[in-house]
Design a protein around this nucleic acid. Structure first.
Ligand SMILES: [Zn+2]
Ligand SMILES: [Zn+2]
Ligand SMILES: [Zn+2]
Ligand SMILES: [Zn+2]
Lengths: 135, 135
DNA sequence: CTTATAAATGTTATATTATTACATAGTGTT
DNA sequence: AACACTATGTAATAATATAACATTTATAAG
């Protein structure tokens, strides 16, 4: 019994699972050292273990890094075509971060060409403003 | 003679000018400690002096921070409405960064509303791909 | 089941990026 | 002069991230 082949292919390693669970349950983006502190009881003791798991999870599109905050949130948008196209709204007062899922926006950006006619394989967009509660 | 009132209002302080000049001359984004190293001969000796100048220059829209690279480039686009609306293309091989100035893009993003009809006061967009040279 | 390979982990140390805190100096205004 | 405000200088430290190397675990082939 146990885990089937195909499940295994998509499953996370032990550290990855621990760290993903923590991020996924969090209502707010988590920073690497906050994560480290919170998983030390589970045996993850050093920064490289955290950063390695984070790197893999980002690659897989399971989480995203909010670059302007150095923090990580779980993807709630079908893993965003494996992390190639991400957009977020960030409240400048309470720091609430929401992943934006807009067909129009992603279509517009995926097809955007610059002056030289160049198209890009990946983008990250961060909007800033005040959330409902903070207005 | 000297500096008129209005010129003074828009002029940079000594440290700000030194650091802006360095960034403005650079063909590539500069990191804070690279800047520090390069201005030590001019008497700027410690990180806070660099970070303070960078903060002000970003506020003024004279430079932008490339969040995914922790690096700074000079604005070549009328100071981007004082730093409220920025877009860049980043080459994932040579790390060349170019500020994108597209009326269509900035109009689209400035008017973008999310599901709740919320508009944002600010955004930063980073596109990734391969530049002409690296393709 | 062995062997080979790749992926993940554990651990120590260190590099890089950024801020706090506090003292001092300049600038413009009244 | 007195005040407020901005900028600067300096030392120490905090926060974020990676290098390097040893070991273990998982996957795939033979
Ligand atoms: Zn996502
Ligand atoms: Zn808010
Ligand atoms: Zn600009
Ligand atoms: Zn390139």
């Amino acid at each position: 019994m146990g885990i089937s082949k195909i499940d295994k292919m998509h499953s996370l390693s032990k550290n990855q699972q621990i760290i993903f669970d923590l991020i996924d349950k969090s209502p707010e983006p988590l920073k690497a050292y906050t994560i480290l502190f919170n998983v030390q009881k589970k045996g993850i003791k050093a920064p490289p273990q955290v950063y390695r798991a984070l790197d893999k999870l980002v690659e897989m599109g399971k989480i995203h890094k909010i670059e302007s905050r150095n923090a990580f949130i779980a993807c709630h948008n079908s893993s965003c075509q494996v992390a190639k196209a991400t957009a977020f709204s960030i409240c400048e007062i309470c720091e609430k971060v929401t992943e934006i899922s807009s067909a129009g926006l992603s279509k517009y950006l995926a097809n955007f060409k610059d002056k030289d006619g160049m198209k890009y394989s990946k983008y990250n967009l961060e909007f800033f403003g005040l959330c409902k509660k903070c207005r």
